[in-house]
């Protein structure tokens, strides 16, 4: 047969690269549109610096959400956990006369406790994580408000501290927190793809019954994912407090939709068992550019929502086209 002798060289993209490819293609398309319409804004170094300031916060939160999503659950409680861990950080800071490490430890402990609480409700009581974390989000927000008593907490003493310089200082146009954010992404990326825990996270969201039959402790894996969200909340809130030298109890409010958007735009499907860390980083960049860009070009803030909506829906189309299924 003649056909057998002709080797048709076709470029085959391995499936696991497709989400990243889709997310980056989408990112560049969006940037092209931005630059076309507002070159004076989007070609400035200042624009990128502005994006890099808040990008790491969204990356760190998004990373933990990728783990939870891939494990087959969802967590909507992180905005409140973020505010609560930030409050504990602030309270400890005041009580210990600026002992940063003790305050950070207290914040991380709080984050872990929040994660264990959610994990317990979801795995031991078998509650739906969507509804549970929705409820927990209200609950933690309430606790935070009660404990905070409506105060704005400022920490001017931080302004020239070395710890502030190390965490949120700037290295030229690059803010230090970007390096931290990317570093955490690298570490979590390696764990996600190469560590036994990461492998089990995939199995938990793909076929938990199979995992259990093969001796994987699926409940523990899921609980650890929720704990990771808690820890990432405390890291994010700490960075955010250092950035502004201020704590306010509504600090988590702007995160919910952009972080979830970053996860899905990045190419991690809601269905579990699959996801990408590199995609998340690109997805977060896309989302933060919209966040920052809409304001930078002088558009009304309302347009941010419109931008998110377009991006999410268009990116879903893109990912689906790449995975070869335009209809369900």
């Amino acid at each position: 047969m003649a056909i057998d002798n002709v080797t048709v060289k076709k470029i085959v993209i391995p499936d696991r690269f497709k989400p990243v490819l889709g997310a980056s293609g989408f990112y560049f398309m969006m940037m092209a549109v931005f630059i076309y319409f507002a070159p004076d804004v989007f070609l400035q170094v200042g624009m990128f610096t502005a994006v890099f300031l808040s990008l790491p916060l969204f990356i760190i939160m998004g990373l933990s959400l990728v783990f939870v999503t891939v494990s087959g659950e969802i967590d909507l409680s992180f905005p409140s956990t973020l505010a609560l861990t930030g409050l504990i950080f602030s309270l400890t800071l005041t009580a210990t006369d600026y002992n940063f490490w003790l305050a950070f430890l207290a914040s991380v402990t709080t984050g872990v406790a929040c994660g264990l609480f959610v994990g317990f409700l979801v795995t031991k009581l078998g509650f739906s994580s969507l509804i549970t974390t929705l409820g927990v989000n209200f609950m933690f927000a309430g606790i935070t408000q009660v404990l905070n008593k409506g105060q704005l907490r400022q920490f001017p003493k931080f302004d020239d501290s070395p710890i502030r310089a190390a965490v949120v200082g700037s290295w030229g146009p690059i803010p230090a927190q970007l390096i931290w954010g990317l570093g955490i992404a690298l570490i979590l990326g390696i764990i996600f793809n190469r560590h036994r825990f990461g492998i089990h996270v995939h199995i938990a969201g793909d076929n938990p019954e199979a995992g259990r039959a093969m001796g994987v402790n699926i409940s523990r894996v899921k609980v650890l994912c929720f704990v990771l969200v808690g820890v990432c909340c405390s890291i994010t809130s700490t960075i955010s407090i250092l950035m502004n030298s201020t704590y306010y109890s509504t600090m988590g409010e702007g995160y919910l939709l952009p972080v979830l958007a970053a996860v899905f735009v990045g190419g991690t499907p809601v269905t579990g068992g699959k996801g990408t860390i590199a995609g998340l980083v690109i997805g977060a960049t896309t989302v933060v550019f919209i966040n920052t860009g809409v304001v930078a070009v002088g558009l009304d803030g309302y347009y941010t929502g419109l931008g998110f909506g377009l991006v999410i829906i268009l990116s879903l189309l893109g990912h689906r086209a790449l995975s070869g299924r335009l209809s369900r």
């Binding site: 492998i199 995939h202 199995i203 793909d206 076929n207 019954e209 199979a210 995992g211 039959a213 093969m214 001796g215 994987v216 068992g273 699959k274």
Partner: peptide, 15 residues
């Protein structure tokens, strides 16, 4: 008891 989205080798060594 297979995790279908995962690779063959991930399934062989699952658990």
């Amino acid at each position: 008891a297979l995790s279908e989205q995962q690779s063959i080798y991930a399934n062989v060594f699952m658990g």
